[in-house]
Design a protein around this nucleic acid. Structure first.
Lengths: 361, 361
DNA sequence: TTGAAAGCGCTACCAA
DNA sequence: TTGGTAGCGCTTTCAA
């Protein structure tokens, strides 16, 4: 089954596997031009919807491109235009753990959905502590790919890294994070209002007076803002705030924080957790300490992850529309890249209280 | 604060934002060569560790590259070498849902970890039903990026798409899927043995005789293999198998399947679910039907997702090392790309029974 | 050991 | 409306 193939000028790659011989032919502008008897410049214009091509020629080009399944070589295009339609999605690499959501999967999904429709790709990058410390100039993907923009996701990206990236002249935006006193575009959920709603629900609808907050590290914007929402409601009601701060926002730390809260202030009758993971930890802690939820202790979370509804009891929480946040981020990014929008933007996605059983309803 | 800058031949991009002016200079081979008084060919050789450069010159090149923070332009390199160090990670886009794990996040994490250390990037692509039907030639990312390899993840990628991709001459591998009668590399957990261990545990250690299986669609290899594991143990023990097949493997379908199982065969005392999502659904169903777990009904899952331990009761399940599967997949891929390994490989990651409370232990 | 130069496939400018 | 052509930044022959 052998055949003499002149590979030299043919742009043909031959793949041999057991008995199958497949030719994967990628056509080029040159080939289209030759077959049509026109110049590659004309073909390029036609394909890119640029003016200066007669409708007749344009149609013939489009037609043939279709037939030959022509697709431009992105590397060549990037080289010629100095523009790579690629977004880098960067997160901090957590060590030692199969984290629940290492990549904000639903946000990435939303981003991918709209970016791909505009011809952009999305590349995932995780940064170790040392890479983060070394800064963006030491991140290969940034330097070698020359992406159109960078998304920095999560509260655990150092602000020095953020600043270095943003000032390096590359479009940068933040997701689930924001930099104060800065005009960096960011998309965030409506943290404060969401947490106000949750806290208020416990106060107004259930009459709780001793409500503890379980939160993550100071400086993590979501924790800070949600805490602010909690505080404003507690103070408006004239109650004493009681806040336990953990160094991470996981089930584990939530459990520990809840135990501490109930130890220190046994009179606590309700807990607001900064996210669902911590809330689930709190559920766990209360079971462990012999308190029934919601009978002896009400618990509300934040995020509305998919497991929240299956917690025992089903978790009252504040729903964060991750998919939409991804889509929003993509839109902002595209606007920036296209220069449509130059003003600073903080995009806020609506977070909504979803009432289930853990609050006592 | 204005300054006349000749941008023409300078490779300088100017970024102006409020008061800051930052120059992001990307040096090129040409610049290194000029500063050193050597040819770009020499610089290229030195940088790429190729023979034919005196150690003296090589050192000077490396030194200067360091100073100028030189990084090669990947687009130019891809164009020149016809090789793009990029892996496409492709999944099927689920409609209408913020799926729990749209991207196998931990697998992606494992992939990224080892691929990035070898200079490869990983790009995420989701395929709609229509794109899947149209085949790989209609996927822009595949045609335009010319990636080094493609990872097709999940059981819901059509085999026609898989075959078309694999025979198109591009390195292809499967994750959490496999094609029978084919030499396509794939990485999978040890499904059958894992499910045997789980089933066997219910039989031997807990004395169950009426054990139902909740599974996903026929043809989804993980479901098939796990079901085979269940069957072999049930039959070895001389019991009657009882299998409920759902059309997806979610909490929702698990709940429905469990209800159906308990309706049809109320004598069922134990349930093996094909994954943790379905197992959590089963937990839910049994609560709903007034059966306590594990008292009236034992339940075991598969996957050991991070929430399994926090289910009520904590879920006995079979742990699948997602992170390792990603790493393994990356290794296989790199071997393929480098031509180190040409033989077909099915890589099996060890799945292990982890015993918690839902089985009755 | 070095350098010159021919591409890789495309865009964009300048002439015709 | 067209075509010719000079790059984009790099790799890789081929000569020197």
């Amino acid at each position: 089954m052998t055949e003499a193939l002149d590979e030299r000028k043919m742009n043909v790659s031959v793949y041999v596997s057991s008995d199958i011989i497949t030719l994967h032919i990628m056509s080029t502008l040159r080939q289209l031009a030759d077959r049509l008897g026109v110049s590659i410049a004309t073909v390029s214009r036609a394909l890119n919807d640029k003016p200066g091509v007669s409708t007749k020629v344009r149609q013939r080009v489009l037609q043939l491109a279709q037939e030959l399944r022509y697709h431009p070589n992105q590397a060549a295009r990037s080289l010629a235009t100095s523009h790579n339609p690629l977004i880098l999605f960067i997160v901090h690499r957590r060590q030692f753990s199969e984290a629940e959501d290492p990549f904000y999967p639903n946000i990435v999904q939303g981003l991918e959905e709209v970016l791909s429709s505009e011809g952009y790709g999305i590349m995932l990058v995780t940064l170790s502590d040392s890479q983060m410390a070394a800064g963006p100039t030491e991140v290969r993907a940034i330097q070698e790919q020359r992406p159109s923009a960078i998304v920095l996701a999560g509260p655990d990206i150092s602000s020095s890294f953020i600043i270095a990236t943003a000032t390096s002249g590359i479009h940068t935006m933040l997701v689930d994070n924001a930099l104060r006193n800065t005009s960096l575009p960011a998309v965030l959920p409506n943290n404060k209002e969401g947490c106000q709603a949750a806290t208020n629900h416990l106060i107004q609808d259930h009459g709780h007076q001793h409500i503890a907050l379980l939160r993550g590290p100071e400086g993590w914007i979501s924790s800070d803002e949600r805490a602010a929402g909690y505080l404003s409601e507690i103070e408006a009601a004239g109650f004493q705030p009681f806040i336990v701060t953990a160094n991470d926002t996981t089930i584990q730390t939530g459990q520990e924080a809840a135990i501490q809260a109930l130890d220190v202030k046994p009179e606590t009758t309700a807990i607001v957790a900064i996210n669902d993971a911590m809330a689930i930890g709190a559920l766990r802690a209360s079971r462990q300490m012999g308190r029934s939820v919601p009978g002896d202790l009400a618990v509300v979370g934040f995020d509305n992850i998919s497991w929240a509804v299956y917690a025992d009891p089903p978790l009252t929480t504040v729903s964060v529309p991750m998919l939409d946040m991804g889509r929003l981020a993509a839109r902002v990014l595209l606007d920036r890249i296209n220069g449509t929008l130059t003003a600073a933007t903080r995009t806020i996605a609506a977070a909504q209280l979803v009432i289930r059983a853990s609050c006592g309803c």
